[in-house]
Design a protein around this nucleic acid. Sequence first.
DNA 1: CCCTGAACCTGACCGC
DNA 2: TGCGGTCAGGTTCAGG
Length: 270
Amino acid sequence: MPELPEVETCCRGIAPHISQQLVSNIILRHSRLRWPVPDTIVEMIGQTIHTVSRRGKYLLLSADSGTAIFHLGMSGSLRIVSAETTLRKHDHIDIEFTNKTILRFHDPRRFGALLWTRSNPLQHPLLAKLGPEPLSKIFTGDYLFKLSRKRNTNIKQFIMDSQIVVGVGNIYANESLFHAGIRPTLAAGKISLARYELLVAAIKKVLTYAIKRGGTTLRDFVGGDGNPGYFSQELFVYGRAGDTCKRCKKILREIRLGQRTTVYCLGCQK
DNA sequence: CCCTGAACCTGACCGC
DNA sequence: TGCGGTCAGGTTCAGG
């Protein structure tokens, strides 16, 4: 699923097809997702989508009286389809528009979500406490350095905490730490400001590249199907445990941190 | 407040 | 071919 670059790619892909379009119907084939889709979602029928935006890994479709909030979880995807498109297993939700296009949500594991809020979506409980966008100017080495003082957690879990910064998932956390030369197990509170500057630069570089990459893969409107914007060949550590480091040729090591697979190079990351 | 681990769910893959 | 175990890109929540 989707990490931030994939969600951004999805957002850009579907926006031209549904912006300013009128919702004619919503079909819920399976509403038991991460949370049940609220009954109030039907309010969207008869309303126009004004903007399609992203906050962290949440997609926001703002309509007349409220906003639909999508999250793709681990295996979710959104596609623009037509009435003739064959239904696949796990195609749980259709949002139909008067121009005949359909926004179709597919999610085998059902860790995704669709919610509806009548107030400012940024004030929604799930979004209110999110940290800054990683590509914004307020996300700096200084910011991470200050927040990390007295934190004993390892640096990898620290940067994957969405209250610290949004959008750094497992793939990009591993990759960013490699590029910054930082060992994932280090206590966040013991890392210097200079190293946090390197880390922030790496995170921005990796995410920006992946978004650019996603944009090149993006064709018709599809927003990804659980695969990263990266081509696996371009990854330096994620999924490469036991293989040799592309930089120093040492064997990449794999450990578990916070229940997530972590891969790093003993030679390049100190 | 901080940290850890369980939980949510399906499918793919691997060894026997 | 089938069976059991393991793993997967995320996030919330309970409990210490």
